[in-house]
């Protein structure tokens, strides 16, 4: 009887913990939506900031965020997918090189973003003389998301049925032809999921971006121009107390972007499962 009473209490505690998690999530998103919605209008999205962000919109930071994310993906996706194909399709996973690569990916995934920022600053910005730019930031972000893209691509490639390969080889197709025409199309939804998740990470990153792309409010046109992303803009607006209203608006736009990215990722995961 005593155990039964105790078990009831434990059950309540377990459910309470889930409730706390849900409340935290709902609280954060709800609060930012309620406080931020009034700041958002067409002008906020389409106009550049003026007076250090006190007035105007955030258009240049939206462009900066998209630009930087695209550059990072453009660099990291071919490398990550290539690495996955090499490990899985060329049978290098269980070699010494494969083990080193696995350790490398795990280590890269664990390095704090501020250390990436320091590295990007000293290597890309200073040593390679790229300055604070979309290029420096994009290269730094690319290294940060490389482990995710490699791992998700590996999983996607593994999931392709073995018969695809044996049938294709039996028909006399070469390895690369098989990969290009059969493996990659079949693995595409899984690979795309990884790309979407990495885009989310790139959009939200701030510490590393601040040190490598700078915080200039101008419109980034060239890849060598500095840029301020939405995340960095939110940080500066809030910490320097420039405009809380605009900070809420920026935070809301970031959350909306992350929710869309999350939804897209789940949608493509479901597509993979259906396959």
């Amino acid at each position: 009887m005593a155990t039964r009473g105790k078990e009831k209490i434990i059950t309540v505690l377990f459910w309470l913990s889930a409730l706390v998690i849900t409340a935290i999530l709902a609280g954060i998103i709800g609060y930012i939506v309620v406080k931020g919605i009034s700041a958002i209008n067409w002008e906020f999205i389409s106009q550049p900031p003026s007076r250090a962000g006190k007035e105007g919109g955030i258009s240049t930071t939206i462009i900066g965020t998209i630009y930087l994310t695209l550059v990072a993906l453009l660099i990291a996706v071919p490398l990550g997918v290539g690495a996955a194909l090499y490990l899985e399709e060329y049978g290098r996973k269980n070699t010494m090189f494969g083990y080193v690569l696995k350790l490398t990916a795990e280590t890269l995934a664990g390095i704090p973003s501020i250390v990436y920022g320091l590295f990007g600053f000293v290597f890309f910005v200073i040593f390679l003389n790229m300055g604070w730019s979309i290029l420096s930031g994009g290269l730094t972000l690319a290294i940060m998301i490389l482990p995710t893209i490699t791992r998700t691509s590996q999983e996607a490639v593994i999931a392709v049925p073995q018969e695809y390969r044996s049938n294709s080889f039996a028909l006399g197709a070469t390895k690369w032809y098989t990969i290009k025409r059969l493996i990659l199309p079949a693995a595409a939804p899984g690979i795309i999921t990884g790309i979407i998740l990495s885009a989310g990470r790139a959009v939200g990153e701030s510490a590393a971006v601040l040190l490598t792309a700078g915080s200039s409010l101008g419109m980034p046109l060239n890849i060598t121009d500095p840029a301020r992303t939405m995340a960095v803009h939110l940080y500066i607006l809030a910490i320097e107390g420039i405009s809380m209203e605009r900070a809420f608006g920026t935070a809301l736009l970031i959350i909306v972007l992350i929710l869309i990215i999350n939804y897209l990722a789940n949608w493509s995961v479901r597509k993979v499962v259906r396959q």
Binding site: I21, T22, I29, V232, L234, A238, A251, I258, N262, N266
Partner: peptide, 20 residues
């Protein structure tokens, strides 16, 4: 899904929420 969303929220947004 909720936990996934928590993981997706960027650290500046957490910092901003904490500050406010």
């Amino acid at each position: 899904r909720f936990v996934e969303l928590l993981a997706g929220i960027p650290s500046v947004v957490y910092g901003f929420f904490g500050l406010i």
